[in-house]
């Protein structure tokens, strides 16, 4: 098992947001975490990488419990994180953004270089010296993924990569994710868009109001329209 999360409970101040969330990602798998707005997808991701201060539970990554480690140490262990808000460094160029993400190569993960990333995201290769602030939303989304890949993660958390993108860019994004999978990166991706999730994932979890309500393959999910209708916006 690449990543195993168990009994994850998270709080923002007094508000209890996640209730005993548990999920697993196997090596080489693409797993979707589905749920409506406010269901707790981003909070789950932020909790896994230690960006939510108040959390309890087990987060076992490659056989080690990383829940007590600071964010940078979790990420350095090979667990990459792509935030929903993108948060690229707008004052830095594309090349410099990639440099911030750079980490030494890892034995059990593909090694990414800027050139390799520019074949994955050709748009970026044409604007290496452009400031992050002067890029379109889709380009920024590609940059934020490329930047995380520079850390050579063996598993990557992608928070709503298709959000707010045009259909053409969404298709490019799906291809890029499948290429990452082929290279050997395990992926946990959060989505509201079931069609997009279906294109890329092997399995899915559904989260609603901070609780996991469904777990199974995409085929199993398709066989249960009731679940889909009650927990996902269609």
């Amino acid at each position: 098992m690449k990543l195993a999360v168990a009994e994850l409970n998270s709080f923002y101040g007094q508000a209890h947001i996640l209730f005993d969330v548990g999920l697993e990602v196997g090596a080489g798998e693409v797993v979707a975490l589905l749920g409506r707005n406010g269901a707790g997808k981003s909070t789950t991701f932020r909790s896994i990488v230690g960006l939510v201060a108040q959390r309890s539970g087990r987060i076992v990554f490659e056989g080690e419990d990383v829940s007590a480690r600071p964010t940078h140490a979790i990420v350095r262990a090979g667990l990459g994180y792509v935030p929903e808000e993108r948060r690229i460094f707008t004052e830095l160029t594309v090349d410099e953004n990639l440099e911030v993400g750079r980490q030494p190569p890892r034995r059990n993960a593909p090694h990414w270089t800027p050139d390799k990333l520019f074949t994955l995201f050709p748009n970026l290769g044409e604007m290496r010296r452009r400031n992050g602030g002067h890029m379109s939303g889709g380009e920024q989304q590609m940059l934020t993924i490329a930047r995380t890949l520079m850390g050579n993660p063996s598993l990557i958390l992608l928070d709503e990569p298709s959000e707010g993108l045009s259909p053409k860019i969404v298709e490019q994004m799906a291809n890029a994710i499948l290429t990452m999978k082929r290279e050997g990166v395990s992926i946990l991706v959060s989505e509201q868009n079931l069609h997009f999730a279906r294109l890329i994932s092997d399995r899915a979890y559904i989260i609603e109001r901070g609780r996991v309500r469904f777990s199974g393959s995409i085929a199993e999910l398709d066989a249960r329209p009731d679940i889909r209708d009650s927990f996902l916006a269609v």
Binding site: L51, V75, E91, L92, V100, T148
Partner: peptide, 23 residues
């Protein structure tokens, strides 16, 4: 690299940590 990290941290320190840099 140090300079680029500093400029990045000037804009968004938490994101720098989320990319594996020890703040």
């Amino acid at each position: 690299r140090w300079g680029v990290l500093v400029r990045a941290a000037t804009q968004d320190r938490d994101m720098v940590a989320a990319l594996g840099v020890n703040q």
